[in-house]
Amino acid sequence: MRVSLPHVLSVWQRNFAMYRRTWKLNLLPNFFEPVLYLLAIGIGVGSYISEMGGTSYVAFLAPGLVTVAAMNGASFEVTYNTFVRLNFEKTYESMLTTPVQAEDLLFGEVLWAVTRSSIYGGAFFIVLIAMGLAPFPYALLAIPVIPLTGLLFASIGIAFSLRIQTIDLFSFYFTMFLTPLFLFSDIFFPLEERLSGAWLWVAELLPLLHPVRLSRAAFHGEFSAALWWDFAYIALLSLVLLYVAAGTVRRRLTT
């Protein structure tokens, strides 16, 4: 691969320049979504639940919702935005008339999606601190999980967006993929208490489960060697998908 970091950053700067102009429209809805879940489910429903996983329900929910904020931040960027730049606005085509190469463009987009996921994850994390839901100092260890979650979902999303031919497929991506992940990745209830046997192994495939485990371990200050598996899953799946996406972006943009 021929990646040039300065060119990757120039692509990142393009998105940053655009975001500075439009962040008010973008940031607010994305930011409020996990806050609303925290209030309605965590505090509302949570008041009928005496404890879960050894803590109050809202404290159980908080670490998972941090990763959801990061997942959403990355996913919006690399789905609709990437598709439009590739197919409608000819943004990528025009970048390739400059010294920027296809791989630079891919990594610039992913780096930007990680940045955006960090903005949303970080903003939500600040809300948790304000509400006293991020116990000091261990919860601070959850901060690196935010960009890691961003990287994972940027890689999944961009690999998907570069391959599909019609924008309509994103409704499947969100409704049939991200929403089930959101509901069944240990965020709202401990998965291992509801599943048994082979299903527990199947559940290990769910991408969001792994960032949630890392985040919750940090919030609770309970660390075990098993967390290396979660970290390895995120790193390996991201690398494999980025490698695949690099091939796709070359094929789509250069002939």
């Binding site: 393009r14 943004t91 025009s94 400059t98 010294p99």
Partner: peptide, 23 residues
Amino acid sequence: LQENALIEPLTPVENLAVFGRFH
């Protein structure tokens, strides 16, 4: 290119800066 590839929410000055950074 045949089709303009400009960043619509940005001004001409900002669009030119983006391209300058690609170089």
